[in-house]
């Protein structure tokens, strides 16, 4: 299960992580190693096995549809890298 440089670049784009050109081959080799390890799973036929959903088979709990949190916008914006008038600032998305 060898991963080549192109796959690293594609996956890095999907994950929105910049990988420098010189470190792409290292990541390709690391990923290949992990996927080789994962390939050991193919030793077992799992065609009739249900994938695990939850260790103790718990189901999603629902709560009453009522407001139980106070607005903490100021507290959350205080730790943001860039805000203005209550908005988070990012580079322009629309030209």
């Amino acid at each position: 299960m060898a991963v080549d440089n192109k796959v690293v670049e594609q996956v890095a784009h999907l994950a929105r992580v910049q990988i420098s050109a010189e470190s792409v081959p290292d990541y390709a080799s690391d990923m290949s190693g992990v996927l080789e390890l994962a390939a050991q799973m193919d030793q077992v036929d799992t065609s009739s096995v249900e994938p695990m959903a939850h260790p103790t088979h718990a189901v999603q709990r629902l709560r009453d549809d009522v407001v139980d949190e106070v607005n903490q916008r100021d507290a959350f914006q205080a730790i943001a890298p860039s805000v203005e008038n209550g908005y988070y600032l990012v580079p322009p998305v629309i030209e």
């Binding site: 990988i19 990541y27 996927l35």
Partner: peptide, 17 residues
């Protein structure tokens, strides 16, 4: 890229794949 270290990036890539 700047915020995450090498092992974290490695796992993000494997996981995304």
């Amino acid at each position: 890229a700047e915020g995450f270290g090498r092992e974290v990036k490695r796992r993000i890539l494997v996981g995304t794949y």
